[in-house]
């Protein structure tokens, strides 16, 4: 079963994302950027759902940079799931190497459909 890492500082959001991912994937969670990156390196998920605004030293974009910088983690699909919805934010995400960008509130069905597309 493919693994998905969910990163968000809100508990409810993590729950929602987990539900959205459905039963098809194994779901792992992280609360902040540093533990997210750590988990990514250790657990090698196939996809990461990444919030941007999180407390701590690393925010979502920095985690994305770290993942992309690591050749071992190249294959991992990363989607930003964030309240930042400006055009500049979207292009920033793209520039940092995100594979997808979901603006909150998002449709869980659409998210699932993306996951399926990427991982199946």
């Amino acid at each position: 079963m493919k693994k998905i890492l969910i990163v968000d500082d809100h508990a409810d959001m993590r729950r929602l994302l987990a539900i959205s991912a459905g039963n098809e994937y194994e779901v792992m969670e992280a609360e902040d950027g540093e533990s997210a990156f750590e988990a990514t390196r250790r657990l090698r998920p196939d996809a990461v759902l990444l919030d941007i605004m999180m407390p701590g030293a690393m925010d979502g974009l920095q985690v994305l940079d770290a993942i992309r910088a690591d050749p071992a983690l190249k294959h991992i699909r990363v989607a930003m799931v964030t309240a930042r919805g400006q055009a500049t934010d979207l292009s920033a995400g793209k520039d940092h190497g995100a594979d997808a960008y979901f603006v909150k509130p998002f449709s869980p069905l659409k998210l699932l459909s993306w996951l399926r597309t990427q991982l199946n």
Binding site: L16, M53, A83, K104, P105, P108
Partner: peptide
Amino acid sequence: AHELRTPMASIVGF
């Protein structure tokens, strides 16, 4: 925006 969107995301999503 962020603060508003976050609860909204839960509401819409769920």
